[in-house]
Design a protein around this nucleic acid. Structure first.
Length: 772
DNA sequence: TAACTGGGCGCC
DNA sequence: AGGGCGCCCAGTTA
């Protein structure tokens, strides 16, 4: 018998103050029960009768098979009130979110949508009504009970509650502020002793009041919404299971389920960050940002412009200073085609085609703006998607290369430097927003953890259209690893930077092992290159990976590409090891490298040739690596025929089928030709990583000493282990780390891709690694 | 004021 | 027609 479980919570931050206040359970025959707890509006904490916990624990303990929508969330919620008493029974747990992604990776996976899709049931009216009640109750409580903890941005203990945003395509539901206040309507009723609806009354609602029993609906608006959920979950899953079995996907599903406890444990473990180091970095960034900003303002002032710098990225003051201010008020511009009043949107390609969004692509080119040409007068080298001059990083890099020394160049350098530091500062803010003081397990002296904090980033294995995981609150997958130029001398060397020019202190320096611990990071080498190379059988590339120590490429994919697209430049230098790279480091080598990455990410001929600064380069590559391009075509054909591509089948799990990855169509009904190969490769890479994580997690549990995975950055795992001892402390854990490496590489074998992993030891910080 | 859009940028 | 994310800021619109 399947048992569905669902919880309603006061928020998502179970490592902070969020708690469940409603638990509902249903079996597949519709036998339902629920526990609703009053939330103290002054503390947002539920008041839980102890007997309830026993009952819920009993249900979980005795169930044959459980099913939840996003199990990891509910398990974290229940754990925050001590449930279940034992470990969560993952081995009998099914998950509709995992199933939903497998059956339709690029479709929404919220329960409301899936109920409609899989069992034709529309539960949105319940949600709609709850939203109305919550919104009203929130307004009411804010004005009548100002001391109540109504959800809002900045509410202590609930860092995930952010303003309110809605990304239509995404799982935005959770980001709506009212969602955290499902308990509030009832709390108002309780506090004001409003009349309860009678249980046996067949209500006739007039607004929020029942005409028959005079009860107020806010008492039950949450339970009306929440009680059916577990039953819906059960029914959705029954259908999903049937579909998965029919499509031959059930083995994949079962393996995929195993990543849930891994993600759950990673979230619980969290990742340590040094407050001391972050404070130091912050001070440096703040000072340098202010310094660089000051230079910008001063230059502007010198030209007679009162520049108001943006806090980050752009504002009109800055853009007008750099590119001139339009004389005509843009609000007055009319679309020349439809004569609409609000065209405003210049269409792409930088040509300044001022037509509205609807009329784009018509080719009419009228730019009614007359920029005033005083002030900085930067040339336009990059445009935004809507055709306006852009000050993005890439554009500024071009300015730095091409402008003569003078105010323009100085301005751009300082602006770029300021931006970079400001970006890092907003990241740092985010970490502080979510962190807790770190307290070592079993610490006797509370000072042991001083200077260290811990973050519990959220990991979402179904957060992308592919098999990549996403991460949030904070995102552990975009932590800066770049160096940056000294704002004082901009790389020419000075006393402050010690002549180095580059300051390597990025935010990764703040992350690292807490006292008594050490980190190892393990990377799959060239994971996303090896997959298409071996799969297609492209000899030139395979050769590269098989013989990484041999001339003339020494395992470098970029050099291989360079030899093909720049034969005239590469071969004359081929006999001198490293010469091509050395001589053209900032030009041809860099451009080729950019092009290589663009290619992996799916760019087309035009973009590749532009990126590599060599017309015809793409075509040469195609001639030299026909099998690679044939694989791309094969994926395109498959996607066009079926609407999805598949990962390479895993011989150990499901030899017949790979994981289907849906390829969305553009508004013109076509699948973009860049998508299929990219999805296939990216997802196969992630499948490998997922299997690796399952194996590694299982192995580390047997190691003792609290060894765990703390970070996953797509092709990299970071392990947190007890610190070794002696002169070469890494040697203590090295055998275990080697074992982890072989578990990782094994996963390539099952999909036919030979893999290698690289290994680094981090004694103090993620920013500095030692190859050991 | 809230919601929404666009630009920008960090990672792989 | 350059893939996948999360997140922030600025400015406009409902």
């Amino acid at each position: 018998m399947l048992t569905g479980i669902d919880t309603e919570t006061t928020g998502r931050d179970f490592f902070h103050a969020a708690k469940p206040y409603f638990v509902s359970i249903s079996d597949s025959e519709g036998e339902q029960s629920y526990w609703e707890w009053n939330v103290d509006p002054l503390t947002r904490q539920p008041v839980i009768p102890p007997g309830d916990l026993d009952e819920i624990d009993g249900v979980i303990e005795t169930a044959d098979e459980l099913v939840l929508q996003n199990t990891k969330f509910d398990v974290a919620a229940l754990k925050s009130v001590g449930l279940p008493y034992g470990p969560w029974p993952w081995e009998i747990t099914q998950d509709t979110l995992i199933a939903g992604h497998l059956l339709a990776s690029n479709q929404p996976h919220d329960l409301t949508t899936m109920a409609l899709v899989y069992i034709g049931l529309n539960i949105s009216p319940f949600e709609k009504r709850l939203e109305e009640a919550c919104t009203e109750a929130r307004r009411y409580a804010k004005s009548h009970y100002p001391t109540w903890m109504v959800a809002r941005e900045g509410l202590p203990g609930f860092p995930s509650i952010k303003g309110s945003k809605e990304d239509k395509k995404k799982k935005d539901e959770k980001d709506k502020v009212w969602k955290n206040d499902g308990w509030l309507p009832r709390a108002v009723c309780l506090h004001e002793d409003r009349k309860r609806p009678k249980e046996d009354c067949e209500h006739i609602w007039d607004g929020w009041d029942c005409k028959k029993c005079q009860g107020h609906r806010w008492w039950i608006v949450l339970s009306e919404y929440a009680i059916p959920d577990p039953f819906v979950t059960v029914k959705v899953f029954e259908k999903q299971r049937e579909l998965m079995q029919k499509k031959g996907l059930y083995e994949i599903y079962q393996e995929r389920l195993r990543c849930l406890p891994v993600a759950y444990e990673m979230e619980r473990s969290g990742v340590t960050i040094s407050k001391t180091t972050l404070d130091q970095l912050r001070k440096i960034y703040e000072r340098e940002s202010e310094e660089a900003g000051g230079v910008c303002v001063k230059i502007a002032k010198g030209i007679g412009y009162e520049l108001e710098l943006p806090k980050a990225s752009n504002n009109n003051s800055l853009l007008h200073f750099c590119f001139g201010e339009p004389e005509i008020d843009e609000k007055e511009i009319k679309c020349p085609l439809c004569k609409g009043k609000k065209p405003k949107i210049p269409s792409g390609d930088g040509g300044g085609v001022f037509v509205c969004k609807k009329c784009r692509g018509s080719g009419v080119s009228i730019d009614p703006r007359k920029p005033r040409k005083e002030w900085l007068q930067l040339p336009v080298v990059h445009t935004t998607d809507s055709g306006a001059p852009s000050l993005k990083k890439k554009a500024m890099e071009i300015y730095k290369e091409t402008l003569e020394d003078g105010p323009q160049k100085t301005f751009v350098r300082n602006l770029a430097g300021k931006r970079k530091r400001d970006t890092m500062l907003t990241y740092a803010d985010d970490y502080e927003h979510f962190w807790h003081p770190w307290i070592p397990v079993g610490a006797v002296d509370p000072k042991t953890g001083a200077g260290w904090c811990i973050l519990h980033p959220n990991l979402n294995p179904t957060g992308t259209n592919t098999l990549r995981w996403s991460s949030s609150s904070p995102n552990e997958q975009n932590i800066s690893k770049q160096g940056m130029f000294c704002t004082h001398c901009w790389g020419d060397g000075c006393l402050r930077c010690g002549g180095e020019g580059l300051d390597a202190r990025n935010l990764r320096y703040a992350f690292g092992p807490a006292p008594g611990r050490e980190w190892f990071s393990l990377d799959f080498s060239n994971l996303e290159l090896r997959i298409p190379a071996y799969e297609s059988g492209e000899e030139a590339m395979i050769e590269l990976f098989e013989r990484p120590d041999e001339a003339p490429f020494f395992g470098s994919y970029h050099l291989l590409n360079a030899s093909i697209i720049y034969p005239d430049l590469f071969w004359p230098l081929a006999e001198q090891e490293g010469e091509f790279k050395k001589r053209y480091k900032a030009s041809w080598y860099q451009w080729c490298k950019n092009g290589s990455f663009a290619l992996i990410y799916g760019c087309q001929e035009k973009k590749f040739d532009a990126t590599t600064h060599r017309k015809g380069g793409y075509s040469l590559l195609k001639q030299k690596m026909p099998k690679l391009f044939q694989l791309g075509q094969k994926m395109i054909d498959h996607a066009n025929k079926h609407g999805y591509v598949e990962t390479i089948p895993d011989q150990a799990i499901s030899p017949g089928r790979g994981y289907p990855i849906g390829c969305s169509r553009t508004s013109y009904g076509k699948i973009s030709p860049t998508i299929p190969l990219n999805y296939h490769v990216q997802s196969t890479a992630c499948w490998i990583m997922m299997r690796a994580m399952i194996k590694v997690h299982e192995y580390l549990k047997t190691c003792g000493g609290d060894c765990r995975i703390v970070l996953q950055v797509h092709d990299e795992l970071v392990l947190d282990m007890p610190a070794g001892r002696g002169k070469e402390p890494w040697k203590t854990n090295l055998p275990k780390v080697r074992r982890v490496q072989s578990l990782m590489t094994e996963c390539g074998t099952d999909v036919g891709i030979p893999l290698t992993t690289s290994r680094e030891y981090h004694a103090k910080s993620w920013g500095e690694g030692l190859s050991v």
